[in-house]
Amino acid sequence: MNNTTQAPIILIELDQETRSKHLDRAKAWFDNVLLTQASNRKLLEDTVEKIEEPHIKQYLTEMVEQEKKHEEKARELFSLIDREPSDVRQLLGEVMGKARQALGDFIAVAGGAKGPWQDLHQVYLSNYNSLGAFAVAEQLGLALGIPRIAEITFGVMAEKSTSQLLLQECVLEMSSMSILYKEDF
């Protein structure tokens, strides 16, 4: 038995104009996700080369592969809102990765640290920055009612959160080596 009627229904913020505006704004943030992710991946790649301690080197090597996948995930976000990523932003991210290394060198000199520790410290901060960018993207996915965005970003955030703990541990463990003993590792 038909229990329905056909009266006009009010759509709240689901009209085409409002929806399109919201998706454009989400796209702008996704470009930011890609930028911070590219920056983090580039910084991590360069840092692995500088580390000699075999276990930390292994952790970071595996992390680089994970970061490459996260970059693919960042690009996938755009297809979920029918938008294209900005390749310029991704390139800019790699440049920023290099700039962070220079910043790390400056901090190291000012703080009396020696060796690759300052790069590791910058990776620690950069990973958190990238994690935060994905976390915001998750919120936008929830606000737009797009579950796939939340699924992708949640998976990335889970891995980056684990990386964050690992990076924190390595940075704190090796800080005495770098600052007190002035030695590489």
Binding site: T4, Q6, I9, I10, E13, L14, G145, R148
Partner: peptide
Amino acid sequence: KTATAAQQDLHNLSTPARPVVDP
């Protein structure tokens, strides 16, 4: 700002979390 829709419009909503509203 709102819009109006007919019931048939609710079978392809732009929110993948709830693409259909059907009494």
